[in-house]
């Protein structure tokens, strides 16, 4: 399953804003620390992500990249 959201964990400052704004509540703060000692934001349940990119827009550090699966027309 290709990832809808990707975190650049090294530069996350664990501010938690993405966790707050995610409409499907799939983002949480990991229980490990990044190089700066912050718990980076992370997602396990990519399936429930709707690629709305609210997380990426509220993130002050451009940590999050967002993708959306391209709907391939089903050729009958």
């Amino acid at each position: 399953m290709d990832k809808r959201i990707v975190f650049n964990e090294d530069i996350c400052k664990s501010c938690g804003l993405c966790v707050q704004v995610c409409p499907t509540n799939v983002i949480f703060l990991a229980d490990y620390l990044n190089g700066k000692g912050y718990r980076p934001a992370a997602v396990t349940d990519q399936g429930n992500c709707i690629s709305c990119a609210k997380c990426a827009q509220i993130c002050p550090d451009c940590v999050i990249s967002v993708y959306r699966p391209v709907k391939v027309l089903q050729t009958v």
Binding site: D2, R4, D10, I11, S51, A53, A56, Q57, P60, D61, C62, I64, S65, V66, Y67, R68, P69, V70, V72
Partner: peptide, 19 residues
């Protein structure tokens, strides 16, 4: 499944993490 980019960091900013 190919993925379309919805959001990525702008080239208007450098790669330097901010303070």
């Amino acid at each position: 499944m190919s993925m379309k980019t919805v959001f990525k960091k702008t080239t208007g900013l450098t790669d330097n993490p901010t303070h």
